[in-house]
């Protein structure tokens, strides 16, 4: 039951469609409303997007593809969390390119995404493994959370290892503590937790426990490769979640092909989870670079557009920012 104050607040905003009515209408026709947002840093932000059906269907390890508007790119994003009661999908976005920076600028509560399709990909296999290390670095911190939670629910002893550049960028520490039996935070500059990379944290955990049954790592390719190389001599089963360039996400374009065990696999329908010891990371990283020139150009163009908007504030969606 809502409090009276909230009801009054709702009544003051008649333009807003009541959330209850919205849930029963065709989401596709209206776009996908953004329910909440929080900014973890000047580059990383979290969105909660309404999609009750997807919130019911989503499993750890899956991803969505979103479009900001009808001229936009199809952007694959790993599902960072889902709330079946609220009917929302949580996405954590790092604003690095033109499209994600545009998201950062326009995606606020009340706005809608033009498209959001999913949950895509094969859900992660969460066995009842005894001791599991869940590793998240950079943009991989958020999507490792549902995996850690799933392992906890399956009865595993969960050791979380999450890495950030510096203390100010840390987020979700409480959430991780609530599902991890042990949590090792690593920062590049040592301003919080261990100083150094997540691999240091993994080594610490392996040394402490001796036997680790599984490692799940999500993060930049360099980090995932380092994790794979670290666990290979120990023979620990290691799973990574790959996020190559995609277009449709339904297995149709083959843009997301990755080499796993010497075979072509499509990350969108065969993955995104793969055995880290089989993945050809050099191939993955080389293929991630293939639109770098275009991406740089798009970013410059975007920045130029933003400058123009600030000079003519009447055109700006949000003149208060920047």
């Amino acid at each position: 039951m809502m409090t009276g104050r909230h009801d009054a607040h709702d009544a003051e905003a008649p333009a807003e469609v009541p959330a209850s009515a919205r849930q029963h209408t065709d989401l596709t026709a209206l776009g996908f409303p953004i329910r909440a947002r929080s900014d973890f840093s000047d580059a990383t932000f979290l969105l909660e997007v309404d999609h009750p059906v997807m919130a019911r269907a989503a499993r750890p390890g899956q991803f969505v593809i979103i479009m900001i508007n009808d001229h936009g790119e199809r952007i694959p994003l790993t599902i960072a969390d889902f709330d079946r009661d609220k009917g929302t999908i949580t996405l954590v976005v790092q604003a690095v390119g033109a499209s994600t920076r545009e998201m950062q600028r326009v995606c606020r509560p009340g706005a809608s995404l033009y498209a959001m399709v999913g949950p895509m990909g094969v859900p992660s296999h969460v066995g009842g493994a005894g001791k599991v290390i869940c590793v998240g670095g950079g943009l991989g911190v958020a999507p490792i959370f549902p995996q850690a939670r799933a392992f906890k629910e399956a009865g595993a002893h969960v050791i979380g290892v999450i890495g950030f550049r510096t203390r100010d960028l840390i987020f979700w520490e409480d959430k991780f503590r609530s599902v991890c039996d042990e949590l090792i935070i690593c920062t590049d500059d040592g301003s919080a937790g261990r100083k150094g990379l997540v691999t240091g944290g993994i080594e610490e955990a392996i040394d402490k426990h001796g036997v680790i049954d599984e490692v799940v790592a999500i993060g930049p390719p360099v980090m995932m490769r380092a994790c794979a190389e670290l666990t290979r001599p120990h023979g620990i089963k290691t799973t990574v979640s790959l996020n190559p360039i995609m277009v449709d996400g339904t297995g149709m374009c083959g843009g997301c092909r990755v080499m796993v065990g010497g075979h072509i696999r499509f990350a969108c329908v065969d993955g995104p989870d793969f055995d880290a010891h089989e993945v050809d990371f050099d191939d993955l990283m080389a293929r991630l670079r293939r639109y770098r020139a275009e991406e740089r150009e798009a970013l410059e163009h975007w920045a130029e557009d933003c400058r123009r908007l600030t000079m003519q504030p009447s055109l700006a969606h949000d003149a208060g920012r920047d």
């Binding site: 199809r74 277009v247 149709m252 843009g255 798009a298 975007w302």
Partner: peptide, 22 residues
Amino acid sequence: ELLTRCNLMKAGRQPDYATPLR
């Protein structure tokens, strides 16, 4: 991929459309 980028996403028509195609 080429056709999807070009036909569906209107790639190659940056900056109006955001999808790249080289």
